[in-house]
Simulated assay, not measured.
Amino acid sequence: MIGVDVGGGDRLALAVLVQYRMATTEQMHWVIAPGVRIEQTRRRLARLREEGLIDRITLPQAGRRRVWFPTAYGARIACEWPELRGRRPSRTASDPTAVRLKVGHALTVTETALAFLQDARHRGDVCRPLDWVTEVHHPIGSGEAVIPDALLYYRRGPVGGDGGPMLRAFVEVDRATMGPGLEGNGGPSCSRTIGGGTAPLPPGPPTRRAEAGQPATAIAGQHPSAGRRLDARRPDLHSQAALRQG
């Protein structure tokens, strides 16, 4: 057997962009390849762009940060892979204008994913790049549905270990742009959905209005300890996500 994963890094990079919607160069580096020099990530992204699989916009702020997103061609290819089968990228996910208009919130959501990934790596828990799924449609009955910013999968303990059940959580990131009414309606619906519609789950940490420019994150968990464990990550999540707000 050949012990080389030919194209594996390119495949993961494209899959992450399709699933996360968009990310900066630095975010992509820390998500897919934190153990190598960032120049390698830059070369990988440039190569994928040359192949027509991804594209980028350049933010006008200081530093002219590049934001990467999948092209329609790249999304079609990635969604044929087993790990992304069933995913339905937004029709505007590959439109540069739509990307530019959504960039503030979307990059904060990506930074939130990165906070969980980095913390899991530090703790030795299981949370891989593709364990963060954005904007998944979840019916809750009576013709209603919720579309959280992300669905998170997280398991305590190392790969292959018996660290307990896989935790699932809906994550909502508010950049102080949502009214209290919209914030308050998300948690119960998310809890009912994760619980299979049979009974309300123990509530996750309550939604907080963003203060001093920090994003507030509402989390509905699958397990009574899920909310507490994820709530413990809130300070790190806030400090990292705040770096990407524009």
Rank of each mutant, 00 (worst) to 15 (best):
M1P: 12
I2H: 14
D5V: 11
V6H: 11
G7P: 00
G7A: 04
A13G: 02
L14K: 05
V16P: 02
L17R: 01
M22P: 06
T24P: 05
E26K: 08
E26L: 07
Q27I: 02
M28L: 13
A33E: 14
G35S: 05
I38A: 08
R42F: 06
R43W: 07
R43Y: 12
R44I: 09
R44Q: 05
R49P: 05
R49I: 02
E50V: 11
D55K: 02
R56A: 00
I57V: 12
P60H: 04
P60V: 02
R64Y: 07
R66Q: 11
P70H: 09
T71C: 05
T71S: 08
Y73C: 13
A75L: 07
A75I: 00
E80M: 12
E83K: 08
E83Q: 10
S90Q: 14
D95F: 06
V99P: 00
K102Q: 11
V109D: 00
V109A: 01
E111V: 13
T112F: 01
A113D: 08
L114P: 03
L117A: 09
Q118P: 02
D119G: 00
D125C: 11
R128K: 14
P129R: 13
T134S: 04
V136P: 05
S142A: 10
I147A: 04
P148F: 04
D149A: 00
L151A: 05
L151V: 03
V159L: 13
G160Q: 01
G163Y: 02
G163R: 00
G164Y: 02
P165A: 11
M166E: 14
L167A: 15
V173Y: 04
T177I: 09
T177E: 11
M178K: 13
G179E: 10
G181I: 11
L182N: 12
E183N: 10
G184T: 11
N185K: 10
P188D: 01
P188C: 02
S189Y: 07
G195S: 09
G196F: 05
T198Q: 14
T198K: 10
T198S: 15
T207V: 15
T207A: 15
R209F: 07
E211V: 07
G213E: 03
Q214E: 15
T217R: 02
A218L: 08
A220W: 07
Q222D: 14
Q222K: 13
P224H: 06
A226V: 15
R228K: 06
R228N: 03
L230G: 00
L230P: 02
R233W: 11
D236A: 13
L237H: 09
S239Y: 14
Q240R: 12
R244S: 14
